[in-house]
């Protein structure tokens, strides 16, 4: 009797009934090992942002900071305060481009993806194949045709040159379409029988079901747009983006190394915050449509 009680007490709870204990252990070991390897840049970036200048160039190099200081951030503030265009303007530019670009992309790409994934109509398949193929053309070459196009439309040196093309990024449509294929047809048919119009089905039924997909897409889009330098299209100082402005600070060379690491930490915070919020929402959704085919 006692033995059984002991056994129960010390038994590690298995996540699922058909998992071997050894397998769980091995997997956790692998995850920890590679996790340390992967976490390295974050640890490094955070530590060096707080390093005083002499510790940055210490020999032998050290990963962890010894005397943490806020000097780098103070220097950054001083430099930002001296800039000709108020620094909040750069911040506004990037926030504006990122939020509008992401919102538009999510809406337009998921609308297209919905009909491509769930309905058959002439040209649909061919169009989708074209989108996948377009992913594979190197962006470096299309830069010049793109520039010519923008100058024809008159969008050079405006936000639109960055925002509008980002609406139609092929990766977003591809991701949404792939994910929407998993939405059960019964769900849509049931809504149709209840008399729902396409737009209603799309916005009220399909979008909530594919929440993990559009949150993931939001992460990609924010990450991309937030780091856009846009140096191809934007020349006016007051329209320049934050990464562009910060890059100008870094051009100060080795004396700015401390400020540089503060800059990279500041630039990282927004995408990481968006990422953490979105990802914890993704992991909360438990897929159970309640419908069995």
């Amino acid at each position: 009797m006692e033995k059984i009680a002991m056994k129960k007490k010390f038994r590690i709870k298995k996540s699922k009934p058909n998992r071997s204990f050894g397998g769980d252990l091995g997997i956790n070991f692998i995850l920890i090992f590679f996790g340390l390897f992967m976490a390295f840049p974050l640890v490094y970036a955070i530590n060096s942002a707080f390093k005083p200048l002499d510790e940055i160039f210490i020999y032998p190099p050290r990963l962890f900071v010894r005397n943490p200081t806020m000097n780098n951030f103070q220097d950054l503030l001083v430099i930002m305060g001296k800039s000709w265009v108020p620094f909040t303007r750069y911040l506004f530019n990037t926030v504006f481009i990122t939020s509008l670009g992401t919102a538009g992309h999510l809406l337009i790409a998921s609308m297209g993806a919905y009909v491509l994934a769930k309905y058959e109509f002439p040209g649909g398949k061919a169009f989708f194949n074209l989108v996948v193929v377009a992913l594979m053309f190197s962006g470096y070459v299309t830069a010049i045709p793109n520039y010519l196009l923008m100058s024809k439309i008159g969008w050079v040196d405006t936000y639109w040159a960055i925002i509008v093309p980002s609406f139609a990024s092929p990766m977003g449509l591809f991701l949404m379409k792939q994910y929407m294929e998993g939405v059960p047809d019964v769900l849509i048919e049931a809504a149709k029988i209840d008399g729902a119009k396409e737009w209603r089905i799309f916005s009220r039924i399909v979008l909530p079901v594919v929440k993990p997909a559009w949150l993931t897409l939001m992460i990609f889009s924010v990450q991309g747009l937030w780091n856009t330098r846009a140096s191809n299209f934007i020349y006016s100082e007051e329209l320049k983006t934050l990464p562009y402005a910060l890059q100008q600070i870094l051009a100060g060379g080795i004396a700015r190394a401390g400020v540089g690491s503060a800059v990279s930490l500041v630039m990282m915070t927004v995408p990481i915050a968006v990422f953490i919020i979105a990802e914890s929402n993704i992991l909360e959704t438990m897929a159970s449509s309640g419908i069995k085919d």
């Binding site: 297209g112 009909v115 196009l149 139609a168 449509l173």
Partner: peptide, 16 residues
């Protein structure tokens, strides 16, 4: 539904 995406896609991705 597809039109907004398709228009922008042709203009900014296919044409270049």
């Amino acid at each position: 539904f597809l039109a907004p995406y398709a228009t922008l896609f042709f203009l900014f991705y296919v044409v270049p």
